[in-house]
Simulated scan of single mutants.
Amino acid sequence: MLEFVFDQFTAGFREWPDLSVDKRLERLAFRVSRAPKSLRAHLERIHYCFNNYMNEQLYAALIDLLIVLNKAGRELSWRMIFGSRSRLTESQFQTLRHFLKNEGAAIEALPCNRFSLFTKGLQSSSPLVQVVEEASEAEQDPLQLARDYIEFSQLDEAVRVLEQAILMRPEHAELHGELLSLYRSTRDRTGFKRVHGELNRLGASLPPEWAQLQDFLKV
């Protein structure tokens, strides 16, 4: 099922080989949200949904592709929609088909579901994803980026960002507090032990919360 995922390492599949189907899709969807113009990311997400019979998620992935393409790449759009037809309801298929056929159809009119990333349809009062193209992950404040991940329940991503940042800047006290909080809430003994060992090897001065959590996790 994963042959179509070109870069499984970037998607997090090799680092976390035991991820559930839903968690794997979450990573693919996140890649789309971080690189909206990457056709590869969109196609991987669509293919993964199709192969795993995740029909509502597939519809959302197709909607997101149409939104990003904004009437460009019509041939690709047609191929994706007709190729996915067996997993869509007739209403969903006709909605997508009508949108492509109707030159004047507004993107805002595309009906969304809760798995859509970029739709402007009103399902809640706050946006699920804010598309930011100019700043890479490395250029952002790791603490704020981790908190953004946490806000959308992407805890694995938050932990990854904090672990990388804390090994580079072990003197940053707030990073310790945020990471330890995640370790505690997820009972992540493996992550705790690995990073604790790395920090000790670096000769970093650790706040007392590390020892407290070590006792709590019984590491």
Rank of each mutant, 00 (worst) to 15 (best):
D7S: 07
D215E: 13
A135V: 10
A146T: 03
G203N: 02
C112S: 13
Y53L: 11
P17F: 14
A173N: 07
L217F: 05
F115L: 06
R194F: 10
I63W: 04
Q94N: 14
A165G: 06
Q94C: 09
L76G: 02
F30G: 01
E139M: 14
R187I: 00
R97F: 13
I150C: 08
K71W: 04
L199S: 01
A60Y: 05
P207W: 06
E151Q: 11
V131P: 02
N52M: 13
N113G: 09
H172V: 12
Q130D: 12
F99T: 06
N55C: 14
S84H: 10
R79M: 09
A165T: 06
G104W: 07
Q212R: 10
F118L: 08
E209P: 00
A165H: 13
E198Y: 09
G104I: 09
G104T: 14
V129N: 01
R79P: 01
R194M: 11
Y149W: 09
L213T: 04
F216D: 13
A105E: 03
I81H: 02
S77F: 01
A72M: 07
L96T: 06
E209W: 04
L100M: 15
E15L: 11
H42T: 09
K37R: 12
R40K: 12
V159E: 04
D18Q: 15
A60N: 12
M168N: 14
M168I: 07
Q8S: 09
H172K: 09
T119D: 08
P111D: 04
A60Q: 03
P142G: 06
F152Y: 07
S20Q: 07
E108M: 08
F30V: 03
R45F: 02
A138L: 13
S125Q: 09
E174Q: 14
R201W: 09
K23V: 05
Q212N: 10
Y48K: 05
V161K: 01
E133T: 15
A211E: 11
L110Q: 01
R34M: 11
T10A: 08
E108K: 13
W16T: 08
A204T: 05
S181V: 03
Q57T: 06
F93L: 15
D188L: 05
A72S: 11
K23Q: 15
N200V: 14
M54G: 07
A173S: 11
E90P: 00
I81N: 00
Q94T: 11
G191S: 07
D148W: 07
S126P: 02
V132M: 06
E26I: 00
R189E: 12
M80P: 04
L69S: 15
G177W: 02
N55G: 06
Y149E: 06
R189W: 01
L145Q: 09
L117H: 00
E134V: 12
D156P: 00
